[in-house]
């Protein structure tokens, strides 16, 4: 098992290395002169040369990459072209918003998706199943920004126009400042995020459960005289969960990218929002920083999930 995990960590490092190479090369071949972005249009040739030297931009590409990667390992992602602040600080500053969004969203989507999936699978073809399936297909089809904008219009704007303050339009209140306000500001983004993913998980869970419920050992469990509740929640769930956990890890990892749209719609200043504005401002160190952070997030989540999976599956756990 240790061996298995070691190989996963190795793969994660490979992912990160390739990702860093990708962003680095991308910006290296990119048109446009970073020195000019920093110095502005009026800068003289001397100033530009000075900036280039300071950033190592006149070195050969592999030296630049080496400089870049060794800095990254020391936690130094460089400075924003725009406001000269360390990229790491800028990014870290935005993390709480995004993590709050993802955290609440995940809990909500699992809380909605899994029960619907299980209920559907217990009686395939029933009215409950049809309702669950309809929810799933509509949810999967709903682009999250459309859902978000519609939610804002219906749940914020219309009540506000009628003089009724149901939900705030946007903004983020830190959890440490006021937990209630924190949650209240995030309810709409959470729901938007959760509804789409809940639909996917409802389907996934239903499929998994149906497959497991058709297994011979479920028949054995029934023949043993266990209650249907125990058959479903103890025996079937035990086998249906591991694949779901894997999927969840991947999804949470990728969420950092996925929340970009929701942050845009609800005006939340999270990591995704940072990425979009950095792209618009041609602020390359920040873009690189966000992409690398995103990659790191995916890799870490995957390793956690693989560990969990190995622990959950008796066949992997007991393998020498």
């Amino acid at each position: 098992m240790a061996r298995f995990l070691l190989s996963r960590v190795g793969f994660g490092l490979l992912v990160l290395f390739l990702l860093s190479l990708f962003v680095f090369l991308l910006f290296f071949i990119a048109p446009g002169d970073p020195a000019r972005v920093i110095a502005g249009d009026k800068a003289t040739v001397e100033v530009l040369a000075q900036i280039r030297a300071k950033l190592g931009l006149d070195e050969p590409i592999y030296v630049q990459y080496w400089l870049f990667i060794s800095n990254v390992f020391q936690g130094d992602l460089g400075f924003s072209y725009r406001n000269q602040l360390p990229v790491i600080d800028i990014v870290v500053d935005r993390i709480p918003v995004t993590v709050s969004l993802v955290f609440g969203g995940v809990i909500l989507w699992l809380g909605i998706g899994i029960p619907i999936g299980v209920m559907s699978a217990r009686k395939p073809g029933s009215v409950r199943d049809r309702l669950g399936q309809s929810f799933a297909v509509v949810g999967i089809s709903f682009p999250s920004f459309v859902l978000g904008m519609m939610a804002l219009y219906v749940l914020y704007f219309l009540p506000a126009k009628a003089g009724w303050k149901l939900f705030p339009p946007s903004g983020y209140i830190p959890l440490t400042v006021d937990p209630l306000q924190w949650a209240w500001h995030l309810v709409l983004p959470w729901c938007t995020l959760a509804l789409v993913s809940a639909a996917i998980y409802a389907r996934l869970m239903r499929g998994q459960m149906l497959e497991v419920l058709g297994e011979d050992y479920i028949r054995t469990a029934r023949a043993k005289g266990l209650t249907e509740r125990r058959v479903v929640y103890r025996h079937a769930m035990r086998s249906a969960m591991p694949p779901l956990v894997t999927q969840l890890g991947t999804d949470i990892g990728l969420m950092l990218g996925g929340v970009i749209v929701i942050e845009q719609v609800f005006g939340l200043l999270g990591v995704g929002n940072l990425a979009v504005s950095a792209v618009n401002n041609q602020d390359r160190p920040v873009v690189i920083g966000v992409v690398l952070l995103g990659g790191l997030f995916v890799v870490v989540m995957n390793i956690i999930v693989d560990t969990l999976y190995a622990f959950l599956d008796s066949r992997i756990r007991t393998a020498a």
């Binding site: 297994e215 011979d216 050992y217 028949r219 054995t220 469990a221 029934r222 023949a223 043993k224 005289g225 266990l226 209650t227 249907e228 025996h235 035990r238 086998s239 959950l312 599956d313 008796s314 066949r315």
Partner: peptide
């Protein structure tokens, strides 16, 4: 009927690998 299953009438199935739950001892 459930209370009879497993207590008064028990069953043995064909494929002993797939008939036991792989994740429990």
């Amino acid at each position: 009927l459930r209370k009879i299953r497993g207590r008064a009438i028990s069953m043995i199935f064909q494929d002993p690998l797939s008939s036991l739950h792989p994740q429990f001892t």
